[in-house]
Amino acid sequence: MQLLLLLVAFLLPPRAGAGEIIGGNEARPHSHPYMAYLLTESPRGLSTCGGFLVREDFVMTAARCLGSRICVILGAHNITRQERTQQSISVLRAITHPGYNEQNYLNDIMLLQLQNGARLNRFVRPVALPQRQSRLRPGAVCTAAGWGRVTLNRRTDTLQDVQLTVQRNEECSSRFQGYNGQRQICVGDRRQRKTTFSGDSGGPLVCNNVAQGVVSYGNRAATPPEVFTRVSSFLPWIRRTMRRFKQREIKLDPPPVTNSSPGWRPAPA
């Protein structure tokens, strides 16, 4: 059943948000054990997003990936295969940042509390978050990863990654109306054809083994730079939210109406 569901997600049309890494390469299998593949149901149908494990019971992603039901796949490399490393877990509770703006994607960040805590091993492991509101310097080289198209017309079923360079805020503020350098990061050298795209939304920007950003948005032509949500600016909200919904509460609190019930899986279209 899981294989069939993943095949359905893989065949989603581009408008549904299939992820895309432009100018990258296939990642070494399981070299990014924090990566999460999200299958989401919404009134518009099934869609996919990226995400990343930040605690055994929490995945971080973009607020724009919210759906009425979400299933998280951890430990995957090839999303169309039933790999023994994979863990499929329903989302108990989706918590979007209260200041998320759907018009300009400001505060584009969301925490997903898992129905059951992930089994941590060498294939599934959380990534570190910033310890304080540190600033990334322009020129810093970081890694982004995701599943989906490797060109505008060709898909891939294996995890891809790409090295991206942090840019000065001016590079994005001159290109995107509403860009906020305090809460967002400008990433990607416009002289290179390297970028994330579309449904890669929610995936991490990892710098020196720390998740500094969340894929948010770019332009329709898939040319850099692009905008990532700055994780360090949301640390108080992140910590407060994860303290509020502790793992022991998973069995005590009934799931809200807007999120998945135990054992839910997306139905084939």
Score class of each variant (00 low, 15 high):
Phe58Pro: 02
Ala128Ile: 03
Leu6Phe: 11
Thr96Asp: 01
Arg155His: 09
Asn25Ser: 15
Gly203Tyr: 03
Leu74Arg: 09
Glu20Arg: 10
Glu83Gln: 06
Thr223Asp: 01
Ile70Pro: 00
Tyr37Arg: 07
Arg154Gln: 14
Gly148Pro: 01
Gln131Trp: 08
Gln133Ile: 10
Leu12Asp: 03
Arg44Pro: 06
Ser216Tyr: 09
Arg69Cys: 07
Gly199Gln: 02
Phe123Cys: 00
Gln133Leu: 13
Thr158Arg: 15
Gly99Arg: 09
Gln2Leu: 12
Leu235Gly: 12
Arg149Ile: 06
Ala63Lys: 10
Cys65Pro: 08
Asn104Tyr: 01
Ala145Lys: 04
Phe197Val: 02
Gln212Asn: 09
Trp264Leu: 00
Pro14Ala: 04
Ile250Trp: 09
Val141Trp: 04
Arg244Ser: 14
Asp189Ile: 02
Phe52Asn: 01
Val141Cys: 09
Asn209Cys: 00
Gln133Gly: 07
Glu170Leu: 13
Gln192Cys: 02
Ser47Leu: 04
Val141Thr: 09
Asn259Glu: 03
Ser134Leu: 15
Gln212His: 13
Pro14Ile: 08
Ser47Pro: 06
Arg137Tyr: 06
Thr165Gln: 13
Glu56Ser: 06
Gly139Phe: 03
Gln182Lys: 13
Arg122Gln: 15
Ala140His: 02
Val72Glu: 01
Ser68Ile: 05
Tyr217Ile: 00
Leu136Ile: 05
Phe197Arg: 00
Pro236His: 08
Val72Met: 01
Asn101Leu: 08
Val59Asp: 05
Gln192Lys: 15
Arg175Ala: 12
Pro33Met: 02
Val59Glu: 01
Val166Leu: 06
Arg93Ile: 12
Leu235Ser: 13
Ile238Glu: 07
Leu7Met: 09
Met60Cys: 14
Arg175Asp: 11
Leu252Met: 12
Leu46His: 04
Gly19His: 06
Ser47Asn: 05
Leu74Phe: 11
Glu83Thr: 02
Pro126Gly: 05
Thr241Pro: 06
Thr195Phe: 08
Arg137His: 02
Arg44His: 07
Arg119Thr: 11
Arg239Lys: 15
Arg193Cys: 11
Pro266Cys: 11
Phe234Thr: 06
Phe197Lys: 04
Ile250Asp: 07
Leu129Glu: 00
Val91Ile: 05
Gly45Tyr: 05
Gly213Ser: 01
Val187Cys: 05
Arg265Thr: 12
Ser134Lys: 13
Trp147Lys: 01
Tyr179Asn: 11
Glu171Gln: 09
Ser233Glu: 06
Arg15Tyr: 13
Glu170Asp: 13
Arg28Lys: 15
Tyr37Met: 07
His97Asn: 11
Arg122Met: 14
Gln177Met: 09
Ser261Phe: 10
Leu6Ile: 03
Arg55Ala: 15
Leu5Gly: 03
Cys186Trp: 03
Met110Thr: 11
Asn116Ala: 12
Ala140Gln: 07
Leu164Lys: 06
Ala9Asn: 04
Thr151His: 10
Gln192Phe: 07
Ser216Arg: 01
Ser42Arg: 05
Thr143Pro: 01
Pro268Thr: 02
Met110Cys: 12
Asn208Asp: 14
Arg44Leu: 05
Ser216Cys: 08
Val231Ser: 03
Glu56Trp: 05
Glu226Gly: 08
Trp237Arg: 01
Asp200Gln: 00
Ala18Thr: 14
Val127Ala: 05
Val214Arg: 03
Gly45Ile: 04
Gln87Tyr: 03
Pro254Asp: 09
Leu7Pro: 01
